[in-house]
Write a protein that binds this DNA or RNA. Structure first.
Length: 904
DNA sequence: ATCTGCACTTAGGAGTTCTCTA
DNA sequence: TAGAGAACTCCTAAGTGCAGAT
């Protein structure tokens, strides 16, 4: 599917006006900013459709084509729909959903399509299915349907407080709600869709998920399923699990196997010259980013633009066939080159692209730049004493400036959740006490009253708020004036913006989730803590604090950082100053990331076939690798590196604990764990029977806190993945599945219509990707009030319609209208005028209802992260061109301008 | 074979600015 | 025109994964 999209970035399309601007595509692609486009209020039908399309095929991923191309589409969808219906969540489930995490459900749908897996892929099957390649994905989808059942979610994790909170934060309602809506709107499709949806997050692929992830309800946590069979493993755990929930970690993992990575570079290339940005602006040729643009353009020449990526995939895949599942890196490269070669135009373009690209990103030891100049970093201003005293046992206490500064850090956090957390208070007290000294009169934190400082702080805030616009402008300009010199670097002669040129100010550490170090004092960073990296020929930045000096000045052009210091919270780690996301270095890195995802598209079939084959491998390690890869592919799970005990207890695929996965007969798995940033992942999916069986075997004989994959760690997993495809690591699957999903959804759901309608399609696709990746956000504080407000307005409008109908009846009889509810006499309107007014009011109600539903649907879904980090911008650009959608409608200006590639 | 350091990407929330609506 | 809410930026925590050291 998306393959092509990946393959060729750009769009081709013939589309008219855009053609000239093709380059636009390019630039966009590698920029990083993202923003979510504004979301529209309409309910999206799309989602339903998407769901419908779930691919059932188990096969190893057949190449996908663009649904658009296929004529059968409707038929297929109908079929699906029928299947889906059953899957639909019951209304009750919908309600429950509120509690659950919405994400999951939706994900599943998409996932299925993506992977083509709705079910477990059987290798053989897949092969057979190749014949279907020419069909649109949607057509090929199977209806697994069942899956969609909602689950009661439970968030099972009740275990940790946090978990609970999270579940609350992300009520499932959304997904369920959405689904329901969808169904209602398009019955047929929805039915189809359902299937997918069920899966939640990952769904995509293979499994069906039950999906709904009703967090709340699930009370059972991941208990193991009885099934356990087998053997088990050993496995001591590194970290004790806490409660059954996610947090447990335990296991001891094995050493990582390191494998020499093969450089994946795609060579081809050449590079680009000046290009234009999406808007047709001239790009700076000097920047490397441009290359991308050029590439894109050429692609356009292919004329494929009008073809959705998905549809283009087939050809690619065929090309790829030459490459075996385990191509050596060189082989892989070769294959990709070949593919490109088929299309001469593209080839040329691609090659330019490659050339333009710079060296690989991090870790490759290659030179990242030739010359680098910058002015160092800017430090926060010294602490300014306010003199407000806290109370200890009711009495004012004198504090030194240093003690007062830290007390203020704590006082201003009074309204945050941290303030109440024992761990936060304990860590803060331990650090503050050191500053107070042994003989200080303050003997305990609980006897301290920080209210005076808090009130002072609030007043300062209010004062600032009351400043006039002019005053604010002046302050802003002054700040800009001071910072201007630190904001830019000149890399290889090109002026590039620096990302975080401000040194982090001192404060209290705000770790996410139940971080063991929350509340600790993050000390002030001084010049003597900072190492500067700059070109040999460039002048060494002057230390901005008189009398002090940098810790060290280096001239290392194999790295991209401009400065770093040790993290005061975890001295083993560092804080780096890098160029901004819009820089050429970042753009290049992004380009490589998306190219790798494209490459994966060409190998995904054989990779899926390979892991499917190993589901019942006698070698436990191989079986674990197969199952873990399947989960990463299907559910878009993160790899799951080992963590230290002084970090929040979160897990990824390789670090899943037995208690994080519950087997639900006959072949469903319920996942419940805390992932990155302690975001809860709850999802029930239907998996291949062999996977289900294997999970039971991995759990057998272990406690809930033991590692599920005790024979595995990310190093081993990635070593294995690299044997399948050069440069392949676990995270590539996330990028791949996100981009493919975007492409698939856009291809499938875009219909003729006006721009706003198309933008809705894009947003829905973005939403699906966010769901797959489990990108969540907390519900805004004002959400409830906003929804309530809309509900009140809708009710008022309904009352108005009632009155208007009465007036209409009277008008038809030649009578005057009744008095208004406000006691005033209403105008005498003709029946026609009244009918028109009724229609208008009805329209308003419908719009508000859509707004309300969209608001509800999106309240826990964060679109920005996927847009910035996972969705290949070339897909977006190509789609915009094909459908005459101004790029700024889906990607904000900032993003477009950021030059990551663009140009700047 | 493992461990650890390092470099870089990915992430959600707070704060700020822009835009829409009454 | 003010206020509300959406959109966007900034901040920095928390991941991934490579490579060299042990």
């Amino acid at each position: 599917m998306a393959t092509e999209a990946f393959v060729k970035p750009v769009v081709p399309n013939g589309h008219d006006g855009y053609e000239d601007e093709d380059e636009d595509d390019i630039p966009l692609v590698f920029k990083r900013n993202s923003n979510t486009a504004a979301t529209t209020n309409r309910p999206s039908p799309i989602s339903n459709a998407m769901r419908n399309s779930a691919i059932g095929s188990t096969k190893s991923s057949p190449p996908m084509r663009s649904p658009l191309t296929s004529p059968n589409r409707s038929a297929s969808s109908s079929t699906r729909s029928s299947m889906m219906k059953p899957a639909l969540p019951s209304s009750s489930s919908v309600q429950r959903s509120t509690l659950k995490s919405p994400l999951r459900d939706d994900r599943s749908v998409v996932a299925k399509e993506r992977n083509g897996f709705g079910k477990a892929p059987s290798v053989s099957k897949s092969d057979d299915e190749d014949s279907e390649d020419d069909k649109p994905l949607s057509a090929r989808l199977k209806l697994d349907s069942k899956e969609v059942t909602k689950q009661p979610s439970s968030s099972g994790r009740g275990s940790t407080q946090q978990a609970v909170q999270k579940s609350n934060m992300r009520p499932q309602g959304l997904s369920d709600y959405t689904k329901k809506k969808v169904l209602d709107e398009r019955a047929p499709m929805s039915s189809t869709v359902q299937t997918k949806t069920s899966v939640g997050t990952s769904s995509s692929k293979p499994v069906h998920i039950e999906q709904k992830r009703p967090l709340v309800n699930n009370i059972d946590r991941n208990g193991l399923k009885p099934k356990t069979e087998g053997h088990s493993s050993q496995a001591p755990a590194k970290r004790p699990l806490e409660k059954g929930s996610s947090s447990n970690q335990s296991s001891v993992k094995r050493p990582k196997l390191s494998e020499p990575a093969r450089p994946v570079k795609v060579e081809q290339g050449s590079h680009i010259s000046a290009t234009q940005d999406a808007k047709g602006k001239n790009l700076d040729a000097s920047k490397p980013l441009r290359a991308n643009q050029a590439t894109v353009k050429e692609d356009n020449s292919d004329g494929d633009d009008h073809v959705p990526i998905a549809s283009r995939m087939k050809s690619d895949s065929s090309n790829n066939k030459s490459s075996s599942a385990k191509p050596s890196s060189s082989k892989m490269i070769a294959s990709s080159s070949r593919t490109i070669a088929k299309k001469p135009n593209k080839w040329v373009k691609d090659s330019k692209y490659s050339k333009s690209s710079k060296s690989l990103p991090s870790g490759d030891g290659q030179k990242k730049w030739k010359t680098l100049q910058h002015n160092g970093v800017i430090f926060p201003p010294p602490y300014k004493r306010h003199g407000v005293k806290i109370l200890f046992q009711g009495k004012p206490v004198d504090l030194t400036p240093e003690q007062e500064e830290v007390a203020t850090m704590f006082a201003v956090m009074r309204e945050t959740e941290y303030y109440k957390k024992p761990k936060f208070r304990e860590n803060f007290w331990n650090d503050w006490r050191k500053l107070l000294g042994k003989n200080h009169m303050i003997k305990s934190l609980d006897d301290c009253d920080f209210t005076p400082i808090y009130e002072w702080y609030m007043q300062e805030k209010e004062t600032k708020k009351q400043m006039t616009a002019e005053e604010k402008r002046i302050v802003k300009e002054e700040k800009l004036k001071q910072e201007e010199k630190y904001m830019w670097a000149v890399l290889d002669g090109v002026r590039e913006r620096i990302g975080n040129f401000r040194v982090e100010p001192p404060g209290l550490f705000r770790g996410r989730g139940e971080h063991p170090k929350m509340g600790k004092l993050k000390k002030r960073i001084r010049p003597c803590d900072i190492t500067i990296n700059i070109g040999k020929e460039a002048p060494i930045p002057e230390c901005p604090i008189p009398g002090e000096r940098w810790k060290e000045v280096k001239h290392d052009n194999t790295v991209t950082w401009l400065a770093f210091w040790s993290d005061p919270i975890n001295p083993k780690e560092f804080k780096y100053v890098f160029l901004a996301a819009s820089s050429s270095l970042k753009g290049q890195s992004d380009k490589e990331k998306y190219e790798k995802a494209r490459k994966l598209h060409n190998h995904i079939g054989s990779i899926r076939a390979a892991y499917t084959k190993d589901f019942n491998n006698k070698d436990v390690t191989k079986r674990q690798i197969a199952v873990a890869t399947y989960l990463i592919d299907k559910l878009a799970l993160r790899a799951g590196n080992e963590k230290d005990d002084d970090e929040a207890d979160t897990v990824g695929c390789c670090t899943l604990k037995v208690g994080n996965v519950e087997c639900i007969p006959p072949n469903k798995l319920k996942f419940d764990f805390l992932g990155k940033d302690s975001i809860q992942y709850v999802n029930t999916v239907e998996v291949e029977p062999l996977v289900y069986k294997a999970i039971g075997q991995f759990q057998a004989g272990k406690s809930k806190t033991d590692d599920l994959f005790d024979e595995l760690d990310t190093s081993k997993l990635n070593t294995h993945l690299k044997e399948l495809m050069a440069g392949l690591t676990a995270k590539v699957f996330r990028t791949y599945n996100a981009s493919i999903t975007l492409d698939l959804m856009l291809s499938k759901e875009t219909r003729d219509g006006d721009v706003p309608e198309k933008v809705v399609v894009y947003q829905q696709a973005n939403k699906e990707v966010a769901i797959i990746c489990n990108h969540q956000r907390t519900v805004s504080k004002s959400h409830g009030a906003q929804v309530e407000k809309l509900a009140v307005k809708i009710e008022e409008l309904r009352e108005q319609i009632k009155e208007l109908n009465i007036d209409l009846d009277r008008a038809k009889k030649g009578r005057t209208p009744l008095m208004g509810s406000d006691g005033k006499r209403k105008r005498n309107l003709t029946p026609e005028a009244l009918e028109k007014k009724i229609m208008q009011t009805q329209g308003k109600i419908e719009k508000m209802e859509r707004d309300m539903q969209t608001k509800e649907d999106m309240k826990t879904v964060a679109l920005g992260t996927s847009k910035i980090n996972y969705m290949d911008p070339r897909i977006t650009v190509a789609w915009c061109k094909r459908h005459d959608v101004p790029i700024e409608k889906v990607i904000c200006k900032e993003l477009q301008q950021s030059n990551r590639i663009a140009n700047t």
